[in-house]
Simulated scan of single mutants.
Amino acid sequence: VRVSPTEELKEYFSQFGSVQRCQLPFDKDTGFHRRYGWIKFSAPEDVQNVFQKDAHVLEGAKLALKQQTRRRRSQRKNPSE
């Protein structure tokens, strides 16, 4: 049974904490996953655990990680003002 790349990524990062969501965008034109994705952890401490490790290698590929800061939704202004 072959595991999907998304499941492999989720399984790998589960060693650092509880993975809430894992997304790997798929390119319909090429038929392959794009070379980036998102992993959402349940707690900020889990993210810090990931960055404690110097290098992450999955299936022979070194992963380049970036931490995304939480974006706040911009408040809508009332158009009548």
Score class of each variant (00 low, 15 high):
residue 69 T to P: 01
residue 75 Q to H: 15
residue 50 V to P: 05
residue 44 P to L: 04
residue 32 F to R: 11
residue 46 D to V: 12
residue 37 G to E: 11
residue 48 Q to Y: 04
residue 35 R to D: 12
residue 22 C to P: 09
residue 6 T to M: 01
residue 35 R to E: 09
residue 45 E to G: 02
residue 76 R to T: 15
residue 78 N to T: 12
residue 29 D to W: 04
residue 4 S to I: 02
residue 25 P to F: 01
residue 37 G to N: 11
residue 51 F to N: 02
residue 64 A to I: 12
residue 78 N to E: 09
residue 29 D to I: 11
residue 18 S to F: 03
residue 79 P to N: 07
residue 53 K to F: 02
residue 27 D to H: 09
residue 31 G to Y: 04
residue 81 E to Y: 07
residue 74 S to L: 10
residue 66 K to V: 07
residue 61 A to K: 12
residue 30 T to Y: 08
residue 57 V to N: 00
residue 13 F to S: 04
residue 22 C to T: 15
residue 27 D to V: 01
residue 53 K to Q: 08
residue 42 S to A: 14
residue 22 C to E: 06
residue 56 H to N: 00
residue 10 K to C: 02
residue 42 S to P: 01
residue 76 R to P: 06
residue 4 S to K: 07
residue 65 L to A: 11
residue 19 V to R: 11
residue 7 E to P: 04
residue 47 V to F: 04
residue 34 R to K: 14
residue 19 V to K: 15
residue 23 Q to W: 00
residue 27 D to I: 02
residue 51 F to T: 00
residue 29 D to V: 12
residue 16 F to K: 10
residue 20 Q to V: 02
residue 40 K to Q: 13
residue 8 E to A: 13
residue 8 E to C: 11
residue 28 K to E: 09
residue 49 N to M: 11
residue 75 Q to N: 10
residue 62 K to Y: 09
residue 43 A to K: 14
residue 51 F to E: 03
residue 68 Q to I: 12
residue 14 S to N: 10
residue 72 R to G: 07
residue 44 P to W: 08
residue 15 Q to P: 00
residue 78 N to P: 07
residue 26 F to T: 11
residue 63 L to I: 15
residue 64 A to H: 05
residue 41 F to W: 12
residue 53 K to L: 05
residue 42 S to D: 10
residue 25 P to W: 05
residue 59 E to R: 11
residue 30 T to A: 11
residue 62 K to Q: 10
residue 40 K to E: 10
residue 15 Q to H: 13
residue 79 P to R: 06
residue 45 E to W: 03
residue 11 E to W: 02
residue 25 P to H: 02
residue 79 P to S: 08
residue 42 S to H: 06
residue 16 F to P: 05
residue 76 R to N: 10
residue 22 C to W: 10
residue 70 R to A: 05
residue 30 T to D: 01
residue 29 D to T: 11
residue 62 K to G: 08
residue 41 F to C: 06
residue 73 R to E: 11
residue 8 E to V: 13
residue 18 S to W: 01
residue 75 Q to F: 14
residue 25 P to K: 02
residue 14 S to T: 02
residue 14 S to F: 00
residue 29 D to F: 08
residue 62 K to I: 13
residue 14 S to P: 09
residue 60 G to A: 03
